[in-house]
Amino acid sequence: MSIKVEQLSFNYGKKKALNDLNFTLESGQFSALLGPNGAGKSTLFALLTRLYSLQSGSIHLQGLDLQKTPTQVMQQVGVVFQQSTLDLDLSVQQNLAYHASLHGFGSREANVRIATELERMSMADRAHEKVRALNGGHRRRVEIARALLHQPRLLLLDEPTSGLDPQTRKILNQHVRQLCEDQQLTVLWATHLIDEIHSQDRLLLLHQGHLLSSGTGEDLCTLSGKEQLTHAFEHLTQQSVAAA
C-alpha cells in the first residue's frame, strides 16, 4: 500500500508541528521516519491514523483519500503506538479478541487469526497470560500481532522499541523487516535511534516539523558529506537548527 502525502501542515494553536510535508512511499517497502524527540513524528502518525483531522494538505493511501474514504483506508492500516495501548489486566487473548471485534470479526474467525499471529510472534504459549505478567519486549510483540490481526497492507510503528533493551530492540526490528519482506507489507517505522536504520532503507528525516530529506540512508550521507549515518543525522539536524 503506497502513501502519498502532499502539502501537509499541522498546528497546535500557534505552534507549528508539521510544515508543508511532501513525500511518497512505495508499496511493500520498509521506510524509516527518523527525527529527534519533538520533530513531529507522533503528530504525523496521528494524522496518518485519522486520530487528528487534517488542517491542510492531503494524505492518500493506495490512491484513496484518507479524509474522503476513512473506513476503506483504516481497514488496511495496522498501528503500533509509542505508548503501550494494551489492557494490562486482560489476557493477551482478550486484548487481541477486542481488537478483532473492532475490525468486525466474529469470535470463531478472530480465534483463528489470533492463533496465527501469536504463533508468528512466538507468543502462542502466552495467550492466556495477563499482559501485566509480560516483559516489555513480549508486550511489543503482542502489539505487533494485534496490529497485523486484520491483515493490513500498511503497518505504522511509532517508536516501537522505546524502553526496550538493545538486544530486544534489534530482534524486534529484524522481525518487522522479515514481515515486510514475507508479506509485502508497507512499513513506516518511526524512531530517533540511528542503529535501527539500514543504509539502504528509505528514510524520511523530520526535524522541527520540516522534512529535511526523503531519500535512502546513503543519500543522506551524500547530502551531508558524512560517511556515517549518525554523523549525517547530527549534521543535518544541527544545520537546520542554525538556519532557524
Binding site: A46, T71, V73, M74, Q75, V79, F81, T85, Y98, L102
Partner: peptide, 15 residues
C-alpha cells in the same frame, strides 16, 4: 482520548 485504550477503539474503521 489521545492514548491508551481509546486510541485502540478509534483505530476501528467504523464511524
Amino acid at each position: 482520548r489521545e492514548m491508551g485504550s481509546m486510541r485502540v477503539l478509534l483505530m476501528s474503521p467504523l464511524p
